[in-house]
Design a protein around this nucleic acid. Structure first.
Length: 289
DNA sequence: ATCCTATCCTGGCTGC
DNA sequence: TGCAGCCAGGATAGGA
Protein backbone atom coordinates (compact mmCIF):
# COMPACT_ATOMS: atom_id res chain seq x y z
CA UNK A 1 0.00 0.00 0.00
CA UNK A 2 1.22 3.49 -0.58
CA UNK A 3 3.53 4.57 2.17
CA UNK A 4 6.07 7.37 2.22
CA UNK A 5 8.23 6.13 -0.69
CA UNK A 6 5.25 5.48 -2.96
CA UNK A 7 3.67 8.84 -2.13
CA UNK A 8 6.99 10.60 -2.71
CA UNK A 9 7.23 8.88 -6.09
CA UNK A 10 3.74 9.99 -7.07
CA UNK A 11 4.41 13.58 -5.99
CA UNK A 12 7.63 13.72 -7.99
CA UNK A 13 6.04 12.36 -11.12
CA UNK A 14 2.93 14.52 -11.16
CA UNK A 15 4.70 17.74 -10.13
CA UNK A 16 5.97 18.74 -13.59
CA UNK A 17 2.50 18.23 -15.09
CA UNK A 18 0.82 20.44 -12.49
CA UNK A 19 3.11 23.37 -11.73
CA UNK A 20 1.74 26.57 -13.22
CA UNK A 21 -1.35 24.83 -14.58
CA UNK A 22 -4.88 26.12 -14.07
CA UNK A 23 -7.94 23.97 -13.45
CA UNK A 24 -10.55 24.59 -16.13
CA UNK A 25 -13.17 22.02 -15.12
CA UNK A 26 -13.86 19.70 -12.21
CA UNK A 27 -16.13 16.72 -11.75
CA UNK A 28 -16.64 14.42 -8.80
CA UNK A 29 -17.91 10.88 -9.29
CA UNK A 30 -17.78 9.76 -5.67
CA UNK A 31 -18.74 12.30 -3.06
CA UNK A 32 -16.86 10.90 -0.09
CA UNK A 33 -13.57 11.23 -1.91
CA UNK A 34 -13.61 15.00 -1.44
CA UNK A 35 -14.36 14.79 2.29
CA UNK A 36 -17.04 16.73 4.08
CA UNK A 37 -17.27 19.51 1.54
CA UNK A 38 -20.17 19.56 -0.91
CA UNK A 39 -19.47 18.80 -4.55
CA UNK A 40 -20.60 22.29 -5.51
CA UNK A 41 -18.31 23.96 -2.98
CA UNK A 42 -15.38 21.78 -4.03
CA UNK A 43 -15.84 22.55 -7.69
CA UNK A 44 -16.22 26.25 -6.96
CA UNK A 45 -13.06 26.24 -4.87
CA UNK A 46 -10.80 24.57 -7.43
CA UNK A 47 -12.18 26.04 -10.63
CA UNK A 48 -9.70 28.58 -11.94
CA UNK A 49 -7.10 27.70 -9.29
CA UNK A 50 -3.48 27.53 -10.42
CA UNK A 51 -1.00 25.02 -8.98
CA UNK A 52 1.91 26.71 -7.28
CA UNK A 53 3.69 23.78 -5.65
CA UNK A 54 3.37 20.03 -5.13
CA UNK A 55 4.78 18.66 -1.90
CA UNK A 56 4.69 15.51 0.13
CA UNK A 57 4.07 15.55 3.87
CA UNK A 58 4.00 12.08 5.46
CA UNK A 59 1.66 10.07 3.24
CA UNK A 60 -0.15 13.15 2.01
CA UNK A 61 0.35 14.92 -1.29
CA UNK A 62 -0.20 18.64 -0.84
CA UNK A 63 -0.92 20.59 -4.00
CA UNK A 64 -0.83 24.28 -3.13
CA UNK A 65 -2.66 26.86 -5.17
CA UNK A 66 -1.44 30.29 -6.09
CA UNK A 67 -3.03 32.76 -3.71
CA UNK A 68 -3.84 30.16 -1.04
CA UNK A 69 -5.76 26.96 -0.53
CA UNK A 70 -4.61 23.48 -1.46
CA UNK A 71 -5.69 20.06 -2.54
CA UNK A 72 -4.62 17.53 0.04
CA UNK A 73 -4.58 13.96 -1.20
CA UNK A 74 -4.24 10.70 0.72
CA UNK A 75 -4.06 7.56 -1.40
CA UNK A 76 -4.85 5.27 1.54
CA UNK A 77 -4.73 1.76 0.14
CA UNK A 78 -5.66 1.83 -3.49
CA UNK A 79 -5.69 5.47 -4.55
CA UNK A 80 -3.88 6.44 -7.73
CA UNK A 81 -3.20 9.70 -9.53
CA UNK A 82 -2.77 10.06 -13.25
CA UNK A 83 -2.25 13.22 -15.29
CA UNK A 84 -3.02 12.23 -18.83
CA UNK A 85 -4.08 13.69 -22.19
CA UNK A 86 -7.72 14.79 -22.21
CA UNK A 87 -9.06 11.74 -24.06
CA UNK A 88 -7.50 9.19 -21.72
CA UNK A 89 -9.97 6.81 -20.09
CA UNK A 90 -9.49 6.60 -16.32
CA UNK A 91 -11.64 3.47 -16.10
CA UNK A 92 -14.49 2.49 -13.85
CA UNK A 93 -12.80 3.42 -10.58
CA UNK A 94 -12.33 7.08 -11.47
CA UNK A 95 -13.43 9.34 -8.62
CA UNK A 96 -12.39 12.91 -9.41
CA UNK A 97 -11.37 14.57 -12.66
CA UNK A 98 -9.73 17.97 -12.95
CA UNK A 99 -9.17 19.33 -16.43
CA UNK A 100 -6.06 21.45 -16.88
CA UNK A 101 -5.25 24.28 -19.24
CA UNK A 102 -2.42 22.15 -20.63
CA UNK A 103 -4.90 19.89 -22.38
CA UNK A 104 -4.30 17.16 -19.82
CA UNK A 105 -6.56 16.00 -17.04
CA UNK A 106 -5.74 15.08 -13.46
CA UNK A 107 -7.51 11.87 -12.38
CA UNK A 108 -7.93 10.52 -8.90
CA UNK A 109 -8.71 6.81 -9.20
CA UNK A 110 -9.51 4.56 -6.27
CA UNK A 111 -10.81 0.99 -6.20
CA UNK A 112 -11.66 0.81 -2.49
CA UNK A 113 -12.84 4.39 -2.05
CA UNK A 114 -10.79 5.00 1.09
CA UNK A 115 -8.58 7.61 -0.53
CA UNK A 116 -9.24 11.32 -0.19
CA UNK A 117 -8.73 14.39 -2.33
CA UNK A 118 -9.85 17.35 -0.27
CA UNK A 119 -9.73 21.06 -0.81
CA UNK A 120 -8.55 22.92 2.29
CA UNK A 121 -7.92 26.58 2.95
CA UNK A 122 -5.09 25.86 5.36
CA UNK A 123 -3.14 22.65 4.71
CA UNK A 124 -0.78 23.34 7.64
CA UNK A 125 -3.71 23.17 10.01
CA UNK A 126 -4.95 19.92 8.54
CA UNK A 127 -1.53 18.33 8.87
CA UNK A 128 -0.67 19.83 12.24
CA UNK A 129 -0.98 16.59 14.22
CA UNK A 130 1.60 14.70 12.21
CA UNK A 131 4.91 13.69 13.74
CA UNK A 132 8.28 14.44 12.18
CA UNK A 133 9.32 13.38 8.70
CA UNK A 134 11.55 10.31 8.94
CA UNK A 135 13.83 11.71 6.25
CA UNK A 136 13.74 15.26 7.59
CA UNK A 137 16.21 17.09 9.85
CA UNK A 138 14.00 16.86 12.96
CA UNK A 139 14.23 13.09 13.00
CA UNK A 140 17.57 12.62 14.72
CA UNK A 141 18.81 9.57 16.57
CA UNK A 142 18.87 11.60 19.79
CA UNK A 143 15.26 12.73 19.39
CA UNK A 144 14.20 9.20 18.52
CA UNK A 145 15.92 7.61 21.49
CA UNK A 146 14.23 10.04 23.85
CA UNK A 147 10.84 9.77 22.17
CA UNK A 148 10.94 5.98 22.42
CA UNK A 149 11.97 6.11 26.06
CA UNK A 150 9.17 8.51 26.94
CA UNK A 151 6.53 6.02 25.94
CA UNK A 152 5.89 2.42 26.65
CA UNK A 153 4.14 1.09 23.64
CA UNK A 154 4.91 -1.87 21.47
CA UNK A 155 7.32 -0.75 18.76
CA UNK A 156 5.19 -1.61 15.77
CA UNK A 157 1.98 0.19 16.72
CA UNK A 158 4.08 3.15 17.83
CA UNK A 159 5.90 3.36 14.51
CA UNK A 160 2.58 3.13 12.69
CA UNK A 161 1.23 6.05 14.73
CA UNK A 162 1.45 9.01 12.37
CA UNK A 163 1.45 11.49 15.24
CA UNK A 164 4.64 9.87 16.52
CA UNK A 165 6.51 9.53 13.25
CA UNK A 166 4.82 10.35 9.96
CA UNK A 167 5.07 8.28 6.84
CA UNK A 168 5.72 4.68 7.79
CA UNK A 169 3.14 1.99 7.08
CA UNK A 170 2.95 -1.74 7.56
CA UNK A 171 5.59 -2.70 5.03
CA UNK A 172 8.37 -0.34 5.97
CA UNK A 173 7.81 -0.85 9.69
CA UNK A 174 8.29 -4.61 9.31
CA UNK A 175 11.34 -4.07 7.12
CA UNK A 176 12.91 -1.50 9.45
CA UNK A 177 12.39 -3.62 12.54
CA UNK A 178 13.96 -6.64 10.91
CA UNK A 179 16.94 -4.67 9.68
CA UNK A 180 17.43 -3.28 13.18
CA UNK A 181 16.99 -6.69 14.82
CA UNK A 182 14.06 -5.58 16.94
CA UNK A 183 10.80 -7.40 17.65
CA UNK A 184 7.54 -5.60 16.81
CA UNK A 185 6.20 -6.29 20.29
CA UNK A 186 9.25 -5.00 22.14
CA UNK A 187 8.33 -2.07 24.33
CA UNK A 188 9.60 1.30 23.15
CA UNK A 189 10.89 2.01 26.65
CA UNK A 190 13.03 -1.11 26.53
CA UNK A 191 14.98 0.04 23.48
CA UNK A 192 18.49 1.02 24.51
CA UNK A 193 20.58 3.75 22.97
CA UNK A 194 22.40 1.54 20.49
CA UNK A 195 19.19 -0.11 19.29
CA UNK A 196 17.44 3.23 18.91
CA UNK A 197 20.32 4.49 16.79
CA UNK A 198 20.19 1.32 14.71
CA UNK A 199 16.45 1.58 14.15
CA UNK A 200 16.77 5.26 13.31
CA UNK A 201 19.39 4.52 10.69
CA UNK A 202 17.49 1.58 9.22
CA UNK A 203 14.24 3.52 8.92
CA UNK A 204 16.01 6.20 6.93
CA UNK A 205 17.94 3.70 4.85
CA UNK A 206 14.96 1.57 3.90
CA UNK A 207 12.87 4.61 2.94
CA UNK A 208 15.68 6.13 0.89
CA UNK A 209 16.30 2.86 -0.94
CA UNK A 210 12.60 2.43 -1.64
CA UNK A 211 12.27 5.95 -3.04
CA UNK A 212 15.21 5.24 -5.31
CA UNK A 213 13.30 2.26 -6.69
CA UNK A 214 10.01 4.16 -7.01
CA UNK A 215 8.36 2.26 -4.18
CA UNK A 216 6.95 -1.23 -3.87
CA UNK A 217 4.22 -2.89 -5.93
CA UNK A 218 3.21 -6.27 -4.61
CA UNK A 219 -0.32 -6.28 -6.03
CA UNK A 220 -2.13 -4.66 -8.91
CA UNK A 221 -3.00 -1.52 -6.97
CA UNK A 222 0.12 0.57 -6.67
CA UNK A 223 1.47 1.97 -9.90
CA UNK A 224 3.35 5.18 -10.48
CA UNK A 225 1.47 7.92 -12.34
CA UNK A 226 3.37 6.71 -15.38
CA UNK A 227 1.76 3.31 -14.98
CA UNK A 228 4.88 1.49 -13.84
CA UNK A 229 5.21 -0.72 -10.80
CA UNK A 230 7.91 0.18 -8.30
CA UNK A 231 10.64 -2.38 -7.78
CA UNK A 232 11.46 -2.24 -4.10
CA UNK A 233 9.32 -5.31 -3.36
CA UNK A 234 12.23 -7.40 -4.66
CA UNK A 235 14.30 -6.09 -1.74
CA UNK A 236 11.82 -7.08 0.98
CA UNK A 237 13.52 -9.03 3.74
CA UNK A 238 10.41 -10.05 5.69
CA UNK A 239 7.24 -8.42 4.37
CA UNK A 240 5.07 -10.97 2.57
CA UNK A 241 7.74 -13.64 3.07
CA UNK A 242 6.07 -15.77 5.75
CA UNK A 243 7.54 -19.29 5.71
CA UNK A 244 10.42 -18.30 3.46
CA UNK A 245 14.00 -18.27 4.76
CA UNK A 246 15.38 -15.13 6.35
CA UNK A 247 17.88 -13.60 3.97
CA UNK A 248 20.24 -13.01 6.87
CA UNK A 249 20.17 -16.36 8.71
CA UNK A 250 17.92 -18.78 6.83
CA UNK A 251 15.39 -19.17 9.63
CA UNK A 252 11.81 -19.27 8.28
CA UNK A 253 10.05 -15.92 8.54
CA UNK A 254 7.06 -16.05 10.86
CA UNK A 255 3.82 -14.30 10.14
CA UNK A 256 1.54 -13.10 12.91
CA UNK A 257 -0.90 -10.31 13.62
CA UNK A 258 0.13 -7.29 15.68
CA UNK A 259 -2.25 -4.40 16.14
CA UNK A 260 -4.57 -5.84 13.48
CA UNK A 261 -1.76 -5.86 10.94
CA UNK A 262 -0.06 -8.72 9.20
CA UNK A 263 3.38 -8.82 10.76
CA UNK A 264 6.54 -10.55 9.58
CA UNK A 265 9.44 -11.44 11.83
CA UNK A 266 12.58 -13.53 11.74
CA UNK A 267 12.46 -15.27 15.11
CA UNK A 268 16.24 -15.51 15.24
CA UNK A 269 17.19 -12.01 14.09
CA UNK A 270 14.35 -10.44 16.09
CA UNK A 271 14.09 -12.33 19.36
CA UNK A 272 10.79 -11.86 21.12
CA UNK A 273 11.04 -9.83 24.31
CA UNK A 274 10.56 -11.95 27.41
CA UNK A 275 8.51 -9.37 29.22
CA UNK A 276 6.76 -6.35 27.86
CA UNK A 277 7.62 -2.97 29.27
CA UNK A 278 10.77 -3.93 31.15
CA UNK A 279 14.34 -3.21 30.25
CA UNK A 280 16.20 -6.13 28.78
CA UNK A 281 18.45 -7.63 31.41
CA UNK A 282 21.60 -8.52 29.65
CA UNK A 283 24.26 -6.14 28.31
CA UNK A 284 22.24 -3.33 29.74
CA UNK A 285 23.08 0.25 29.00
CA UNK A 286 23.68 3.09 31.36
CA UNK A 287 21.23 5.65 30.17
CA UNK A 288 20.86 8.77 32.24
CA UNK A 289 17.53 10.54 32.24
C1' DA B 1 -1.67 6.45 28.50
C1' DT B 2 -2.38 2.52 26.01
C1' DC B 3 -4.93 -0.96 23.85
C1' DC B 4 -8.74 -3.08 21.30
C1' DT B 5 -12.41 -3.22 17.96
C1' DA B 6 -15.30 -1.64 14.36
C1' DT B 7 -15.78 1.06 10.25
C1' DC B 8 -14.98 2.22 5.56
C1' DC B 9 -14.57 -0.75 0.62
C1' DT B 10 -13.97 -4.19 -3.07
C1' DG B 11 -10.83 -7.12 -5.93
C1' DG B 12 -8.62 -11.24 -5.45
C1' DC B 13 -7.92 -15.40 -3.40
C1' DT B 14 -9.18 -19.99 -1.21
C1' DG B 15 -11.92 -23.89 -0.79
C1' DC B 16 -15.74 -26.58 -1.98
C1' DT C 1 -17.13 -22.59 -13.55
C1' DG C 2 -19.49 -20.60 -9.81
C1' DC C 3 -19.93 -18.86 -5.51
C1' DA C 4 -19.63 -17.85 -0.57
C1' DG C 5 -16.55 -16.23 2.66
C1' DC C 6 -12.44 -14.30 4.01
C1' DC C 7 -8.43 -11.20 3.54
C1' DA C 8 -5.74 -6.96 2.76
C1' DG C 9 -5.06 -2.34 5.31
C1' DG C 10 -4.54 3.67 6.72
C1' DA C 11 -6.87 6.39 9.51
C1' DT C 12 -10.22 7.36 12.89
C1' DA C 13 -13.73 6.95 16.42
C1' DG C 14 -15.32 5.08 20.53
C1' DG C 15 -14.98 2.11 24.44
C1' DA C 16 -12.26 -0.64 27.93
Amino acid sequence: MPELPEVETVARLIRPHLLGRTITAASVAWKRTIGAQSVAAFERAVLGARFESVERRAKYIVMNFHGGGALVCHLRMTGRIHVEPAGWDPGKFAKVRLDLDSGRAFHFIDVRKFGRLEFVRDPAQKLAELGPEPLGPEFTAAWFERALAERSRALKPLLLDQTFLAGLGNIYVDESLHRAGLHPLASSSSVDSAAAARLHAEIRAVLAEAIEREGSSFDVFYRTPEGNPGSFQHQFRVYGRGGEPCRACGTPIERSVVGQRGTHVCPKCQPRPRRRGRKARRGSQRSKG
